[in-house]
Design a binder for these strands. Structure first.
Length: 364
RNA sequence: UGGGGUGUCGUCAAGCGGUAAGACACAGGCCUUUGGAGCCUGCAUUCGGAGGUUCGAAUCCUCCCGCCCCAG
């Protein structure tokens, strides 16, 4: 039943994608491995951790090659430096400059990993029918809706559906997420079974950057300005709007306060940062634009809706309203902390991902 | 040199006779395929110095020392 289908597995050199390839091979698919190259080495930096973007990519590609060799499958490296630069890095810089906090993973997934990577591989003569990754999420063909749907990973602690809500029907139609029904425990056991025990030693989580100072990525030089309180009183200085995010507590340099102050608003136009105590961070409502529906709004199944305001937030109950201009307005049952423009809000009906958008503002 | 003020953790800063808040910074840990995000823990046996009064002082008194302001 799987015979004849050729599956390209996006291999990062980590345990998840390696086990993904192993599982699909065991199932009888014809497998090849693909690894993206996005680091062109032109930028000087000081790598201090594992991440997607940085000089450590070379050894990750080596690990992917080794894994592919170990599985006895063909492996290809696809150079996407130019695409990554114009899609992810430009976006990253522009968002910060405008006082928003970018989420590179969301953009990278929908446009590079599940976009350019697939296209470029095919156009460079690497044919395949399906594309698989090691994401903890599930894809289903829903007969009633007549659509492909995205579901949360079974292991809720590892669920990565949040990062995938921007995928299109076309993308979902050719995607496999074999790890969606496994737990991290299962995957580790499978890695051992497959003879990739040494991959367990690799650091689990990946940051976006291998370095912490992202100044070199900013196309516009940050300008220092004032930090004010909600009454408008100047209480400190900031190094440039691009270095702050909503809810940030550290590195504000505000002394002499009775309680910690957090960034509660960023005014890029006025080059000003508003800081205040924790309760000022709470908001009940938000507006999101640039919405992508996996289930069109009118077809939503009945029931309670939950939304995630950031990747690490638990889904929170809310009521959604689609406005005439296509933007999405949400009202939460309980106030949410640090609703951050630029971050994605993703809507769920139980396990089902309904869609999501980019937050543009919040209201109390 | 008169007059006034002040001296508490690297920094800002509570305390006002009852046995050193808090914030920033720093260090370590946790979380995490976004975030200089968040969370947790640690961080002054000691309050410019020396005496004194008290059962008991950072808190009161005395004398030094250092800053700050006003006068000249």
């Amino acid at each position: 039943m799987t015979s004849g289908k050729r599956v390209a597995v996006g291999m990062s050199g980590g345990i998840d994608s390696t086990v993904t390839a192993y599982l699909l091979k065991e199932k009888g698919y014809d497998i090849i491995g693909l690894t993206m190259k996005i680091w062109d080495g032109s930028m000087a930096c000081d790598p201090v951790r594992s991440g997607c973007y940085g000089p450590g990519e070379a050894s990750d590609i080596e690990d992917a090659k080794k894994a592919a060799a170990g599985l006895g499958i063909e492996h290809f490296v696809v150079d996407l430096c130019a695409e990554y630069d114009s899609v992810v890095l430009d976006y990253f810089s522009a968002e910060y400059t405008d006082g928003r906090t970018p989420n590179p993973c969301v953009v990278c997934n929908s446009r590079v990993k599940f976009g350019s990577l697939i296209e470029k591989a095919r156009t460079s003569g690497i044919p395949f029918d399906l594309f698989a990754t090691g994401h903890y999420a599930r894809v289903r063909r829903d007969a009633a809706l007549g659509r492909y749907t995205l579901l949360r990973g079974t292991d809720k602690s590892k669920d990565q559906s949040y990062f995938l809500y921007r995928l299109s029907q076309d993308q979902l139609s050719q995607v496999l997420f074999p790890l969606g029904e496994f737990s991290k425990q299962d995957v580790k056991a499978l890695a051992l079974e497959a003879g990739f025990g040494e991959y367990l030693e690799k650091r689990e989580s990946q940051d976006f950057l291998e370095f912490t100072d992202y100044t070199p990525l900013l196309k516009e030089t940050p300008r220092a300005g004032n930090i004010v309180d909600t009454a408008g009183k100047i209480i400190g200085k900031h190094r440039g709007v691009a270095f702050y995010t909503i809810g940030q507590r550290r590195a504000l340099g505000l002394a002499g306060l009775k309680e910690p102050y957090y960034v509660i608003r960023i005014d890029a136009a006025g080059n000003e940062i508003v800081a205040g105590p924790k309760e000022e961070l709470m908001s009940r409502g938000l507006v999101a634009e640039n919405v992508n529906w996996l289930v069109p709004f009118p077809e939503w199944p009945d029931g309670v809706i939950h939304a995630k305001i950031r990747s690490t937030a638990p889904p929170a109950q809310c009521v959604a309203d689609l406005r005439d201009d296509g933007s999405l307005a949400l009202c939460f049952k309980e106030p949410q902390e640090s609703i951050t423009p630029g971050q994605s809000v993703v809507l769920y009906r139980g396990e089902l991902v309904l869609g999501g958008g980019i937050i543009t503002g919040s209201s109390r």
